[in-house]
Nucleic acid binder design. Structure first.
Length: 481
DNA sequence: CTAGGGTTAG
């Protein structure tokens, strides 16, 4: 008989069961052993003990962490029957669980059913973070205003809920306004809030504002460095990433897997193989070698730097391959013109039960286009929506225009553009112009160029680049435009 | 209630 079973028998034989069960449950949940916590809860019920207000929060928290909304709803019923619903801890954990499981309307309902909710900061915060997760900026702002109106205390966690959903590209105004609130409440120097503000700026594409804040932050923790490094990485500023990483090392701050992910992806973009290999060594030294995020980043780095064999070795060695791992290796073969291999891998992925996402389709479509597998690409494009319910985005249309364009099927490319429901982006016009250049189609190039000029959303430097690209096609005088 | 991550055509 194992220790654990002995313990269960002991607990089942005691008359005062709840305290012991609750202690076990709490310890499991606090150690992030959520599956264990839930099985303890079930054992508890079977043993005839009654869960109480010290039991439910930890069981509910486990449902939230494991994203088990159905189990969560069952627990909700148990809570109602037990009469614990009005306990603040229980109430808050329920709101939080529904929020994390993306059942924000259920969260709202629990919140509204109990008038006590509107007195509690933590309860408001739970609901706020639920709305934040769904990027419901408006609801977040309304709730925040309500808290202020009712005089409910506003703390750092409240601010996190308010700041998080403001990280949307081109949303500088609201972001700065929210930053202002943080300052007003004296919470901008709170390290979590500061890091969250930094992330908000970089996610909005306001990388300079982010850097300014970063420089001003008095205490830079690992998360601060990571937010800035990954912010540069996500905005394509790979050189800044390497520079900042060097600075971080020189300050004696030890990287963690999140740091190295950003650095590796920048090495990949720069084709900086030796820097990438150095990161790989660092991974080994720090014991991060089996981190799946880092392995995916490594596959991408080796593939982009031209070492497909090494990329393939890492891919083959992964015990669990996610759709991201597959996308990275497929993209790797695609960018080196090995479209046949890419297509085979894509089909193998599907046979293996991995559902492709929009990004996986981008990588296979572009592989088809590079290898001249035009009809295969057209098939995938059709299957994408019909079989997988994925609406093609601008990036997929760009691939298709590239695919058709390279094959000289410019009229079909033009028809596709005219039929599409999403707004054309720069990549699409770039692909079309590229095709016009190859096939010397001046008429269509000029049409594309006209559309670029009409599209006010397109930034000026880009328009100028395309203008120059068009000149090469038509060999017309720059001054005529 | 609680801040940061991998894949994406041109």
């Amino acid at each position: 008989m194992t220790m654990k079973t002995k313990l269960y028998h002991h607990l089942q034989s005691t008359t005062t069961k709840n305290p012991q069960w609750n202690t076990l449950l709490r310890e499991a949940a606090n150690k992030s052993l959520f599956t264990k916590a839930l099985s303890l809860y079930l054992h508890m019920l079977r043993s005839g003990a009654f869960p109480n207000a010290f039991t439910f929060p930890f069981a509910i928290k486990s449902c939230a962490a494991l994203s088990l909304p159905i189990t969560g709803k069952q627990l909700h019923c148990h809570i109602v029957k037990s009469g614990c619903l009005l306990e603040p801890f229980v109430q808050t954990s329920l709101v939080s669980m529904y929020g994390k499981c993306s059942l924000i309307d259920n969260a709202r309902q629990v919140f509204d059913e109990n008038p006590q909710s509107r007195k509690l900061t933590v309860c408001y915060n739970s609901l706020l973070s639920g709305y934040a997760l769904k990027s419901r900026v408006k609801d977040v702002v309304v709730l925040f205003c309500e808290m202020r109106g009712l005089g409910v205390e506003i703390n750092g966690v409240t601010m996190l809920g308010l700041v998080q959903p403001c990280g949307i590209p081109g949303n500088l105004g609201l972001g700065m306004c929210v930053h202002g609130f943080c300052v007003k409440f004296g919470l901008d120097m709170d390290s979590s809030v500061g890091n969250c503000l930094l992330t908000m700026y970089v996610k909005s594409g306001e990388i300079d504002c982010g850097r300014k804040l970063f420089n001003e932050m008095p205490r830079k923790g690992l998360i601060t460095w990571n937010a800035m490094i990954n912010g540069y990485a996500q905005n394509g500023l790979a050189n800044n990433v390497l520079e900042l990483y060097k600075e971080m090392e020189s300050k004696g701050v030890c990287p963690d897997p999140l740091t190295l992910v950003g650095v590796l992806s920048s090495c990949a973009h720069l084709g900086a193989l030796s820097a990438g290999k150095e990161v790989e060594r660092k991974m080994e030294i720090c014991g991060f070698s089996s981190n799946p995020f880092l392995k995916n980043a490594l596959i991408n780095m080796y593939a982009r730097c031209g070492n497909l064999e090494k990329a393939r070795d890492i891919f083959d060695g992964m015990p669990v391959k996610s759709v991201v791992s597959w996308t990275a290796i497929i993209g790797g073969y695609g960018m080196h013109g090995l479209g046949e291999v890419a297509v085979q891998l894509f089909d193998e992925m599907i046979r293996g039960g991995i559902r492709p996402d929009g990004t996986a389709f981008v990588s296979v479509l572009s592989a088809c286009s590079h290898a001249g597998l035009t009809n295969k690409g057209l098939d995938y494009f059709g299957v994408m929506e019909r079989k997988y319910g994925l609406r093609p985005g601008a990036e997929h249309y760009s691939c298709m225009v590239d695919l058709l364009g390279r094959a000289g099927r410019l009229n079909e490319a033009r028809e596709l553009i005219e039929s599409m429901q999403v707004r054309a982006d720069g990549a699409l016009w770039g692909a079309l112009l590229g095709a016009c250049k190859i096939h010397r189609n001046v008429e269509l190039a000029e049409l594309a160029f006209e559309r670029i000029n009409q599209d006010c959303a397109i930034k000026k430097p880009q328009a100028l680049r395309w203008k120059l690209s068009l000149m090469k096609v038509t060999e017309i005088d720059f001054l005529r435009h």
